[in-house]
Each structure stands twice: as C-alpha cells, then as structure tokens.
Amino acid sequence: MALPGLVYLFINNYMPLPGLVLAFKKYNARKGIFGSDFVGFKNFKYLFATRDAFVITRNTICYNLAFIIVNTILAVFVAILIAEMTSKWKKVYQCLILLPYMVSMVIVSYLVYGFLSNDNGFINNTVLPLFGADPVQWYMEKKYWPFFLTFVNAWKVIGYNSIIYISTILGIDRGIYESAAIDGASKWMQIKKITIPLLKPTVIMMTLLAVGRIFYSDFGLFYQVPQNQGSLFAVTNTIDTYVYRGLLELGDMSMSAAAGLYQSIVGFILILAANYSVRRIDPDSALF
C-alpha cells in the first residue's frame, strides 16, 4: 500500500544525496558532478568570511524564532476559537482562514505595496492623514520591517497551521469537558486546564519540526515583500536571499549547493539537540 509513496520518497529524497558532493567541488559541465575538481571547503567561504555573514545568520535565526513563537500562539488561539464555534458559518470561516496560505507570495508583495507605496499607498494617502501625520517612506525605514514581516507571515500561515491543532482538539473526548462543566469549571478554566495541556504534544512536535528548518527562510517573504530594497537589507537579508542575489550572476552551482548543505546540516544537528532536551524533560512528548 505504501510502496508507491516509499518509492517516490526514495527517488526524490534519497537518490540525489550523493550529489551533495557538489558542494565540495568546482563544477564543470564537461566533467560532470563526479568528475569535477575537488576544492574542499572553498565554496563555503562566502557564507562565513564576509561582513554580511553575521547579519544574514542573525536575521535568519531571529526571524524564525519569532515566527515559531508568534505563529504557534496565534494558531493555537485560532484553533481553540474555531473548535468552540457552534454557528453554521463555521465551515465558511475555516475555508476563509485557509485562503491566505494559498495566495502566492508575489501577489502578497503587491498587496503590501498597495498599503506601503510612497506615492499611492493606502497608509500614506488615507490612514496617516487621519492622524495628521506626515507620509513615511516605508521602504526606506528599517525599524518597522521586522514587525511587517512577522505580521505578513502570521497572516499567511496561521490558518494552515491551525488545522492540525483543530484536529487534535476535535480528538479530545467530549466527556472530559462535560464532567468539568458539571464540576463548575468556566469556559476559560476548561480551555486552560483541558485543551491546552492536551495540545502540548502536538505543539511540541510542530515546534521541533520548525526548529529543523531554522536556517531556512521563506524566500518570497524576504525577497518579494520588501521589494528587494537595498535600504532594508540589514533587517531583511537572510541566507537564502543572500545566496540568490550573489549567485544570480555568477551562476555557481557548487556555491549554492554549499549553502543548502550548510542549512540542512545545522537544521539536522538542532533537531537532534532539541529532541534530546525534550526527551530529558518529558519522554512522552519527544519526537523520536
């Protein structure tokens, strides 16, 4: 039954693994991947030796930590709200809240542009004049962008992330709630003492998976939404966008392979470490 899926997994995820050696070679199309010259760690130099290395690593990690925390809290909140809903519009809300996840990031970047554009944006033309404030050049002010990006990312993914929490909540035995209500527990008490503790394993699992991707970033979010503005690089440049910008002209496949290898190795180590610490605290919640 699982055979086609396993075959696909093997072909797509395991067979290309020997190609990782590309990260340590200087690729020449004539010699092929395995025939190209071995150059050791030279392809990794650009990720560590430059002044940008600190900025991009810091940005990637900090944004991902912020996203994990904010998105988990909001997704759980939304999931509890939806699970508690009894009106006939519940299915409609569930579909609507999923919609932002389906929208391509390029479109989202133009939605944001519609708000933040200097000359024609909604904020500069309508909202700020209401308060009598001067227009702000949003794409040149660095300090607002961590907030903007976290907000856009949350808007986009909490609908999707809440699905798994909703299904966990629906799996909780109704009887527990009824007996709590009989014992005099208020709605808030029920949520605090029953729903959230029972969601704990799911939250931990989702967080561990997110930690494994902590060195990756959503390329569309960090490249398209700030409209590739140089003035915002200090707060929006991540490892993925840095590699893209630099290598678009060089076309150096071994350097991009090196970046990908670096991200996945670090993610792998972090997931093992995080899982190990979770296992020490609460063995039942650990992933493996």
Partner: peptide, 21 residues
C-alpha cells in the same frame, strides 16, 4: 573570477544595499 566569487557575492550584496538611494 571564480577565485574571487566570495568577494563578488559580497560586493554585489553591498552594491544592492547602498546604491539605490
């Protein structure tokens, strides 16, 4: 310029950051 591809990447990023304004 493959010997200097690390510098080129950094230069390109630096240029994109500060040239527009």
């Amino acid at each position: 310029n493959t010997e200097y591809s690390a510098e080129f990447t950094a230069l390109k990023n630096a240029y994109e950051e500060f040239s527009g304004q």
